[in-house]
Computed example of a mutant assay.
Amino acid sequence: MFKQFIGWKFILVTIAVAIIAATIWFVSNLSAKIQDEERKKVATWVEAYRELLKSGSDANLNLATEIVTTNTTIPLIQTDAAGNIVDSRNLDTTKISQNPTLLQEQLLSFKRQHPPFIIEIDAKNKVYNYVYYGDSLILKQIKYYPYIQLLVVALFIGAVLFGLSSTNRATQNLVWVGLAKETAHQLGTPLSSIEAWLEILRENEANVPFVNELTKDVDRLKLITDRFSKIGSVPKLEQKDIIRQIEDMAAYIRRRAPQKVQIGVHTAETELPVMISAPLFDWVIENLLKNALDSMEGKGNIDITIENHPAVVTVDIADTGKGISKMNLDKIFRPGFSTKKRGWGLGLSLAKRIIEDYHKGRLSVKNSELNKGTTFRIILRK
């Protein structure tokens, strides 16, 4: 089980997680260093402001003035002891003039971010002001940069994976379509030959009984060939009574099912016309019924419930077989996946393609429980 995870996908995910962790760690350290530098700058600004208030020597005054005026990046708000704003710097004055409450909101934000610096205005009367500051624009950009980068990378990876998935799905479709058409082509030649031999055998009246039985099998093979030939091309949808279609197919499977298997069709309607391709739709029903038979191992019930809704028709095919494990529920419609020893894993994949691509409906597992059974649901638009 562990070996399944040691693949290129797991390695790529591990590398991606490592890069993300390293990026966040590096940016966090860088942000902390810049934040510390900005605090030192604010402390220097506060000291220079104090020098201006003392009005000392001209040299000190000029130096203090230069320090105070050169801070153009770190936003500051100065308040008195009562919390009234007396000064602000490096804030968007246009937005503040349009929204007077914005300055108070910024002050509350600064109080949450950093502790204030205290400026002594009047030592004798113990008058103090408080300087609050916030992060500079550069620091904010650095903090949010890794998350924006990760979002862009995630979107890019998602787009690439979606493209690869679509390409892979299209390639698989081409393979299955080519296989189906080639199968139909290969069956056509021997069928024509068998039909000719049957006509010769029919000339002898003694051969008529078994010739008639052989003719039924040939007709069945012709129907299968016709189904394969329609894969890959857009089928012509015709209005058919879906109840009659399902009852005919149920009767066909019933004749070939073990005696201990009961197949029932349940509906409150007498007739229900729906636009379908009859040969392909019959193929879907036949495939689902045969899968149900295989899962029951010779005994049990298969119940087909047809319901008429305002916009759609639903067909539920429920069996009392061995069910599908949760691990396999997401895999059963994948081409090539099969739990049978001799299965090709094409039946459910083609059935889903027929219902969803050709009939614009939906085929899904309504519910399944191990050792109790499975219910497949078909939804067709009316």
Rank of each mutant, 00 (worst) to 15 (best):
L12Y: 03
I24W: 14
F26I: 10
S28Q: 14
N29H: 11
I34L: 08
I34A: 02
E37P: 01
K41T: 06
V42T: 09
A43Q: 13
T44H: 11
S55W: 10
T65K: 15
T79L: 02
N99L: 01
P100E: 04
L102D: 02
L103I: 11
E105Q: 06
Q106V: 00
Q113K: 07
Q113I: 05
I118S: 14
K124S: 05
V131W: 01
L139I: 05
I142Y: 15
Y147F: 05
Q149D: 12
L150K: 08
V152C: 09
L155F: 13
F156V: 15
I157Q: 07
I157F: 12
S165W: 14
N168C: 00
L179V: 10
G188L: 12
S193Y: 11
A196H: 13
I200T: 06
L201K: 00
N204V: 03
K230I: 08
S233C: 01
L237T: 09
L237P: 01
E238D: 13
E247D: 04
D248N: 10
M249Y: 08
Y252Q: 04
Y252N: 04
A257L: 03
I263R: 05
S277R: 04
S277L: 08
E286Y: 13
D294T: 14
V312Q: 13
V313H: 12
I317N: 00
I317Y: 07
G321M: 03
I324F: 01
S325H: 03
K326L: 12
K331W: 01
F333I: 08
L348Q: 01
V365N: 02
F376C: 00
K382I: 00
